[in-house]
Design a binder for these strands. Sequence first.
DNA 1: CTGATTGCAAAGAATTTGCACTGCT
DNA 2: AGCAGTGCAAATTCTTTGCAATCAG
Lengths: 162, 162
Amino acid sequence: MLERRSLIEELNAKGVRLTAQRRALIEVIQEAKEHLDAASLLALARQREPGIDRATVYRTIELLKKLRLIDELDLMHLEGEKHYYEVKTRREHLHLACFRCGRIEEFSTALFEQLKDEIARQAGFAIRIARLEVGGNCRACAAAEEAGANRKPEKALAVAGH
Amino acid sequence: MLERRSLIEELNAKGVRLTAQRRALIEVIQEAKEHLDAASLLALARQREPGIDRATVYRTIELLKKLRLIDELDLMHLEGEKHYYEVKTRREHLHLACFRCGRIEEFSTALFEQLKDEIARQAGFAIRIARLEVGGNCRACAAAEEAGANRKPEKALAVAGH
DNA sequence: CTGATTGCAAAGAATTTGCACTGCT
DNA sequence: AGCAGTGCAAATTCTTTGCAATCAG
């Protein structure tokens, strides 16, 4: 399921009207090095297309989701309840969110595909989106926690937050 | 993860203060037949404890999440952006949300455990929460869609093309 | 041309917070 | 008795919507 074509070409092919605003947003999302939320998307798009409004950002996100060109992520809601977006081109992967340092790690494995196959086969479910998000402590933070754990009094409620 | 004890006992054991409000909320969440969001939780809890406020609902949800007694779900945000909650007692399972009929199906498989093991091992990630949510068409709706061609309104989609 | 798309401003949904009071343990 | 827990109302955060103006095809 690889998409060689850029999102712009993809949209053209689907006969979607291309405005300057959409072009700006698409470029931003395509060139992004990290996962962007709607506000960041807006800020970056404004550098290219100053007048662009947040309503347009949300409407465009909706459009791209429906066309299945981008995926929406929660990333364990490490901060607030916003959503993050990524182009659907890279190899299918899942996200590991560290509650301690906040870093997002991507992870790929054939098991994920196998799991989806099993769901489709056993439940007869036609999967359109499968989102697996994991929260916990990354390798470094797990080690750090381990070290500090000996000194810390056990606090049932010390948590996840950030 | 075996929890034979009720949430109430669990909380007592952890030395958490038990108020009438918490008791009401816990009973509601424990007896729920379907996944409840904060608003439903509030409505149901009020039947037992009329004065209860929504702030208390959210604070209690937060508490139970931190104690790892409940899980928070998005259920593909089939309607709005609210969250749903379920007690962590049942066998670990994932959720299949049908975009067409809105039904939520639960699914269990050893592959999910294997996948988590692989993540823990290969990435050295200490998993605290692993949430897998799937969206698509359930067996019945997939069949119906197949038969009825494309004349059905969908719950979350349907774009361009025509 | 003409309907799809936009900006704007305002509304909406879901959740959180500050503060004084209440009630568990 | 003391302090965690609560209700209330207001605030915040994120997202959506109505409508008139604009622009792509």
